Computed example of a mutant assay.
Amino acid sequence: MTEPLWHSLLDDEARQVAQQLADLLPGPLHTLGLQGVRDFTAPLPPSRSTVMATVRDHRVGVPSVRVREYRPSERTGSPAVMYVHGGGFTVGSLDGVDELCRLIAAGARCAVFSVDYRLAPEHPYPAALDDVRAVHAWLTTSAADLGVDPRRIAVAGDSAGGGLAAALCLDLRDRSLSQPVLQLLAYPAVDDSFQRPSWSEFADAPLLGAEDARWFWHQYVGEAGVAPDVLAAPMRAESLSGLAPAHVITAEVDPLRDDGEAYADRLAEEGVLVTRERYRGVFHGFLTDVETFTTARTAVNDACRRLRDAFQTGLVTDQRI
């Protein structure tokens, strides 16, 4: 059997995981069907390796959204990150990003609020965005009661969660509300054109191939596959000016890679302060697998440095792109 062209790009850890996925999956992920995809991607019980002073759940809004709070210390008036998990808008959970949120809280010296938004297709667009919007409003208006500094709140997310975080920033701008101090976007789902080169170069990439991504998109927006508005696909916005500074993370072997990098380029072109990092040798989803991929730890450390800078100054420290 001929190895895919991307095989030689993976580092040893990613190549081993890719082989395990190939052994477990009879075909592309989406061919398992909705319940099969959810069963396959369900996280193992979280390790909780990084100890927190406080971990507690909140219920926010109507309908109720579960939010998990992580605090590395009992200090009040701390900065905060609202974290939005990935999963193609269809899968994913608080437990799936538990250790990642702990590492961010410890590394960025902040509180983290992880959002358990409603999933498609049972709750299609804009349900997830409505939940993210409601949690952000709660976090900003209840900051004093939560022991959070309302002037130092960042938003972050991976994959679908990165797209939701980007959409939130657009929505806040268009409603003339304050921007976060940073938008941390890991391989964000921000476009629905599926046309940039990485979509063909890595069409059969591990875990998430091009057809898988299209399948997830249809679960989110319906069979027609058309974005109802620009908040579903932020790259379609007429302007990206006036948005929060951004740190954009991409994976080398990922159909979504070029979309995330094009979004970072466009942010920079329209006057937004941006840093961008492509992590070599890994594929989509690596960031949340912090106990498997050495590169994930590196990326988290880099992201925490960006967050600390943003919390300290309100701006990222360089404009490298």
Rank of each mutant, 00 (worst) to 15 (best):
W217E: 13
H284W: 03
P188A: 03
D265Q: 14
D191A: 14
T250F: 00
D229Q: 07
E270N: 05
L240K: 05
W217S: 13
E270I: 04
A227R: 05
L240D: 01
D259F: 03
Q195H: 08
G242A: 07
R278M: 03
L177I: 01
D265Y: 03
V274I: 11
V253I: 13
D254N: 09
A224Y: 01
R257Y: 03
Q183L: 04
L231H: 15
A224K: 15
L177H: 14
G260A: 03
Q195G: 15
A246Q: 04
D254H: 05
E238H: 12
H284C: 09
E269G: 13
W215Q: 13
V226M: 09
L256V: 13
P180E: 06
L185E: 01
A244I: 10
G285F: 10
G260N: 02
A244H: 03
L243E: 04
D229T: 08
G225Q: 13
L231A: 05
Y220I: 05
D258R: 08
Q195P: 00
V248I: 13
V253N: 01
A264Y: 03
L184C: 08
P180F: 11
V253G: 01
G209P: 08
Y187Q: 09
L267V: 10
R196F: 04
L208Y: 12
L182A: 12
Q195W: 00
D254G: 04
G285P: 05
V190D: 01
D192N: 15
G222D: 14
P188I: 02
